[in-house]
Amino acid sequence: MFVNRRDVQIQWGDCDPANIVYYPRYFEMFDDSTSIMFEAAGFSKQDIIKKYGLVGIPMVDTRAKFYVASTHGDWIAIETRVESFKRSSFEVIHKVFKGQVLAIEAFETRVLVGRHPDDPARLKSAAVPPEIIKKFMQG
């Protein structure tokens, strides 16, 4: 299974007045981590959109469990992987580590969408290409 790991230093602007990371900032990090994972696997978002005629890969569901807070200057490691694929959607899991401690588990569901063939003003889900599934499931 393909897993991408990246180190992130918490910046001043990531924190609230209590000097802990303001939770929406984590969701920005997770969005970046998904894009970075795809790029590391050889599938940049721009290339996928162009090659398969997609409009985008929007997030349709997300949630997180927070265990340990981080503050300005801390280093965290974000491990990102695709947990599973369905016809047009996939589940992503992000695990955030502060040192060796699991600090956050986050989950997102994303869907590949393109233009509806009968009405280009509407969107329609698109099947996940087999080569993408193969790369993420086999590593």
Rank of each mutant, 00 (worst) to 15 (best):
I132Q: 03
H94F: 00
S84K: 11
I49G: 08
F30V: 02
L54S: 06
R5G: 10
A69P: 15
K86R: 14
F107V: 08
K134A: 15
F97Q: 03
S35W: 14
F27E: 01
A77V: 15
S35E: 15
Q11M: 12
F97H: 06
V113Q: 04
P120C: 02
F43S: 07
W12N: 10
G56V: 04
V3Y: 04
M29T: 02
A69L: 09
G53M: 10
I104P: 00
A40V: 09
F107S: 09
I36M: 11
F38Y: 11
G73Q: 03
F30L: 03
Q9W: 09
P58N: 06
E28W: 05
V60T: 14
H116M: 08
E108K: 05
R122H: 12
L54H: 03
S125F: 07
P117G: 05
A69N: 12
S89W: 08
D119A: 07
E28V: 13
Q11G: 12
V96D: 01
V68A: 11
G42W: 08
E131C: 11
E131A: 06
E108R: 02
A103D: 04
V113W: 00
S33E: 03
D31T: 13
W75G: 07
T80W: 00
S35P: 14
V113Y: 02
A126S: 15
M37S: 08
D7F: 13
Q46V: 15
K95C: 13
H94L: 02
M1E: 08
M29D: 03
F107M: 05
G53V: 10
A103F: 05
S35Y: 13
Y23M: 07
R122P: 11
S70P: 06
D74I: 01
G114Q: 01
I10F: 02
